[in-house]
């Protein structure tokens, strides 16, 4: 499979990374070379092989339903580049 400009545009949109001509050109080149590289996997017969998403072989730990105050409002908002007394502030969202 090969990546063209349209695909790069689509992917950068999905990734929320602003795109321009130069970015698109370099991505077309890099992404195609990476894809060609990873497509070596097509040599393998992987029929009926169970996918492995975690190497951990234990049961999922489940915590009790207990409220713990882990953070104060000031801490939560502290690092925000744009906030007011109570909220994170973002440019207007158009629904």
């Amino acid at each position: 499979m090969s990546i063209n400009k349209e695909t790069v545009k689509k992917i950068s949109k999905l990734s929320r990374i602003a795109s321009n001509e130069q970015f698109e050109d370099s991505m077309i080149k890099d992404l195609n070379s990476i894809l060609t590289f990873v497509e070596q996997l097509n040599e393998l017969n992987i029929k009926n092989i169970e996918p492995l998403s975690s190497v951990v072989e234990q049961k999922l730990f489940q915590r009790e339903d207990v409220v713990k105050i882990m953070n104060e409002k000031e801490d939560v908002l502290k690092n925000s580049p744009h906030k007011n007394e109570n909220y994170f502030v973002v440019p207007k969202v158009i629904e």
Binding site: F61, Q62, V67, K68, E72, K73, N86, Y87
Partner: peptide, 29 residues
């Protein structure tokens, strides 16, 4: 582990996990 209580002050029931601070991880209830 933050509270689910309705009607609290804005951003007063937000843990580090809920605010997606870097390196925070989910643990199921």
């Amino acid at each position: 582990s933050s509270s689910t209580k309705f009607g609290s002050d804005p951003n007063s029931q937000v843990s580090l996990v809920d605010a997606a601070m870097p390196g925070m991880l989910p643990v199921i209830n």
